[in-house]
Simulated assay, not measured.
Amino acid sequence: MLSKRLFDIAASLVGLLLIWWVFPIVAILIRIKMPGGPSFFCQKRVGKDGRLFTCHKFRSMTVNHNGSSVSVAGDSRITPFGAKLRHYKIDELPELWDVLIGNMSFVGPRPDVPGYADKLQGADRDVLKLRPGITGPATLKYRLEDEMISAYVAKCQAEGDTRPMQEIATEYNDAIIYPDKVRLNCYYYRHYSFCKDIEMIFATVLGFKVKFAGEMV
């Protein structure tokens, strides 16, 4: 995958050179609209070969929250300004730096917190042979993941489920969404195509669907 890495270096460098001016503006707005915390959110994530790395994003949540890795649309931890950053994927712009230095790629599985990818067994561990990505087939399929989880939580609560929202959301993610993401990411590893990478990048930016693993994502 030499062509993949060379593309990552060139594209991330060009991207950072073109949009560097956005970073101080967003950072200042975060400090104004979400005072009491840093502008950047830095967290250890599981990378290629299971090695931990520091993932960089713009902060979109309150400083003091329960730390659950599964978020839901309307989640009280996400501030109004943070919701806008997440909706337009602006919160992920700092990940261009992670791509440039080799911790991430433009296309690949989203970087997981410890307890997910590093716990995979058997052939599913092929996911760990990939650098985490800003986008990818699973990211495209679940681009409205927060809304999907929120709808499931609302359905369960309407049926009388009295468990906390985060517990229901985590159950749905762990039992349904995450296994499907693993399936898609393993297929991506075993059927890698540089041309498909480019197609998925354009699909992410322009918002259209692409055919992948026999379905539209």
Rank of each mutant, 00 (worst) to 15 (best):
D118P: 09
L128V: 03
F81N: 05
I30S: 01
I177C: 04
M1Q: 10
S193V: 12
S105K: 01
R143P: 00
V99G: 06
D49F: 08
F81A: 10
K4F: 06
E159W: 00
S60E: 06
M200G: 10
V217L: 05
G207Y: 02
K44E: 14
V127E: 03
V70N: 05
L96Q: 05
T204C: 05
E167T: 15
F41Q: 03
M200V: 09
F208D: 03
F212Q: 12
A73Q: 14
E167F: 04
R131G: 02
R45F: 06
I9W: 07
M104N: 05
F106R: 10
D126R: 15
D98K: 10
Q166S: 13
L52D: 04
R45N: 05
M148C: 08
V205H: 04
S68K: 10
K119P: 02
Y187G: 05
F202I: 13
R110M: 10
F212C: 12
K211L: 08
G37K: 01
R45I: 04
R131Q: 14
S39L: 02
P132L: 02
M200F: 11
K129G: 11
K33S: 07
T170C: 05
V205D: 03
Y192N: 05
A83K: 12
F40V: 10
R143W: 03
L6N: 07
M34S: 15
G74A: 10
L2S: 07
G122M: 07
G47C: 01
L130A: 13
T54I: 14
